[in-house]
Design a protein around this nucleic acid. Structure first.
Length: 559
RNA sequence: UGGGGCGUGGCCAAGCGGUUAAGGCACGGGGUUUUGAUCUCCGCAUCCCAGGUUCGAGUCCUGGCGCCCCAGCCA
């Protein structure tokens, strides 16, 4: 990873709070945590949280950030997700050192805390059905009412909970609830669930439990056990903060972390919820969690995004409590900046058409030199073979070209990058009128792409020697959705807005010979964009490149 | 007409009562250029609205308006 250009992370309201807490002596060191539920793959929205939490641990003295798997629902979670999540966090460039935890590590303690609540008459076992509980809860404008089981004795409650734990009951038969206030205006405080029966085994604890704790109970207690100082989460948990604090106030926990909420990331032209991503993957709307069109970290990694670019993006968008939809161009700008700085250049023709230099010797070859990086001479030069028959981009020739078209048309002279000036004399067309060959003459005095007479050529185009070309498949990606906010339509399902044209496969691409070498890093194909070999489909002899992102194109804009 | 949040330019985002309201992205225009890339220069808001406090308010107060979240034994 190239980290040389990393700039200091801009401050935000959360860092301001931390600064104040350190200043006042409330804390002398900071501990944050990134607490994913292992029920899916991480996406760029998680990256925002990861960068926030781990970023703080890097920037403050003695600070740490825990990676904690919030594995309280064995019905949805799988250990394979745990591995994928770890890989993604590491790939992003962060290290949890020995601070790897699971909420399931605390199941014994959680249970003891639940018993403590019962003993304080702050929790009870309810035996209402799920449907009745919903009815008793009231709604947004009407208060709820007490369950008939709310008055059970401490002894009965403990015995019942014990039975639930041992698996003596069916799922849904009983539920441990906090005893708070059924008429609370905040619905989360209307006797929320603490433990529910799930007669299923758990990836980490196997068959030892028949009850599993709910998020609201498990999360705050886990934070407290780990000594988290600042528990950062997204806005939708704001209403849960009173409950977070209630548990920690009632219980004798070793600490009382502060929950602070920030707004989640939304990117335009994509979706960011795990539920929707699951749906896209399972409904075969895309090809797996690592589909290069997805905003998942594994998809972006496959596409060719760099950790550097994603971290830079996260620091640019900031952290606030305001709802937002970030434009894709911000991400692309971070990407281009990193890739432009760090990618070697290459010549590659994606949509080839023959260019024949009529006055070039029939069986002559020569080796020309191309710079690997125009801004970094220290990266050296490479050899590029040149000969009479080349491939150029079909779009670099135009029959009735306007004055401002700087490329080839009859009578116009252009520079072949690193090679020679050529002038188009005529073209050959097939029966259907399609251009098949562009014929040119070259000026042998312009070797290397410059002339002594100071003659100006406005256009420079890329090319590949036909007989030296390496064949490859190139996949070009476009946005996955046709509208900026596919998830925000009230009438229509977001899937109705899927872009049917989000992937273009070009199978007949011609790459310069140096690209034969297998490589994991990205290249800039000059004048086109950034590309990298596909990490699953590319093989020696059958290269497959993904277009990560195009170059900016002010000419395309003008047209 | 329940509770909790949010509202600074097209999209983000600084600003914490006191010079002409940072910066990034986007957009428009000029220059450089063997990538119509990069680089570079220039342009681009009076802060949701209305009152009020103050010598002075985006920043304080009051009242509106708008948007988001909450009725899982999900997280």
């Amino acid at each position: 990873m190239n980290d040389t250009t990393t700039e200091p992370t801009p401050s935000n309201f959360i860092r301001n709070i931390i600064d104040a807490d350190l200043e006042s002596g409330k804390h002398n060191k900071v501990i944050t945590r990134f607490p994913p539920e292992p029920n899916g793959y991480l996406h760029i929205g998680h990256a925002k949280s990861i960068c926030l939490n781990f970023g703080i641990s890097q920037d403050y003295p003695d600070a740490t950030c825990h990676l904690r798997f919030d594995d309280t629902n064995p019905g949805k979670e799988k250990s394979e997700y745990i591995d994928a999540i770890k890989e993604d966090v590491r790939w992003l460039g962060f290290d949890w050192a020995d601070n790897l935890h699971h909420t399931s590590d605390y199941f014994d303690q959680l249970y003891a805390y639940a018993v403590e609540l019962i003993k304080k008459d702050k929790a009870y076992v309810d035996s209402l059905s799920a449907g009745d509980i919903r009815l008793y809860r009231g709604n947004l404008t009407e208060p709820g009412k007490d369950s008939p089981f709310r008055g059970r004795s401490v002894e009965d409650n403990i015995a019942l909970l014990e039975g639930m734990k041992k698996g003596e009951f069916a799922e849904g038969e009983h539920l441990l609830r906090a005893k708070i206030d059924m008429s609370a205006p905040n619905i989360n405080m209307r006797d929320p669930a603490i433990y529910r029966i799930k007669n299923m085994s758990h990836p980490m604890t196997g068959d030892t439990w028949h009850i599993y704790p709910m998020y609201d109970f498990a999360h705050c207690v886990s934070d407290a056990i780990e000594g988290i100082t600042h528990s950062l989460c997204t806005l939708e948990f704001e209403d849960h903060r009173p409950l977070y604090d209630w548990f920690l106030d009632e219980l004798e926990t070793p600490a009382h972390p502060q929950q602070i909420e920030f707004s989640r990331l939304n990117l335009d032209y994509t979706v960011m919820s795990k539920r929707k991503l699951h749906e896209l993957v399972e409904g075969d709307f895309v090809n797996g969690w690592n589909d290069p069109r997805l905003p998942t970290l594994s998809g972006m990694r496959r596409r060719g995004y760099t950790p550097n670019a994603i971290r830079d993006f996260c620091s640019r968008i900031g952290v606030t409590k305001k709802d937002n939809i970030i434009e894709m161009s911000v991400l692309e700008n971070s990407l281009r900046e990193d890739l432009g700085e760090n990618s070697p250049r290459a010549l590659a023709v994606l949509d080839p058409i023959k260019l024949i230099i009529t006055n070039y010797p029939e069986d002559q070859d020569e080796i020309l030199a191309g710079v690997n990086h125009p801004k970094k001479p220290e990266e050296g030069m490479r050899d590029i073979p040149f000969s009479k028959e080349l491939y150029i981009e079909r779009s670099d020739y135009m029959e009735d070209a306007p004055k401002k078209f700087f490329r080839l048309t009859e009578g116009r002279e252009v520079r072949l990058r690193f090679a020679y000036y050529v002038t188009c004399t005529h073209v050959i067309k097939d029966a259907s009128g399609e251009v098949t060959e562009v014929h040119c003459t070259y000026d042998s005095q312009t070797r290397g792409g410059k002339s002594e007479d100071g003659r100006k050529v406005k256009g420079t185009i890329h090319w590949v020697s036909a007989k030296h070309a390496v064949n490859a498949e190139v996949r070009q990606y476009d946005r996955l959705f046709t509208i900026a906010a596919p998830a925000s339509s009230k009438e229509q399902d977001y899937k109705d807005f899927i872009n049917k044209d989000s992937i273009h496969v070009l199978k007949n691409c011609k790459l310069e010979a140096s690209l034969l070498e297998p490589a994991t890093a990205a290249y800039q194909f000059e004048r086109q964009g950034y590309f990298c070999q596909d990490n699953v489909d590319s093989k020696a002899g059958a290269l497959v490149f993904n277009r990560i992102v195009t170059l900016r194109d002010s000419w395309a804009k003008k047209k």
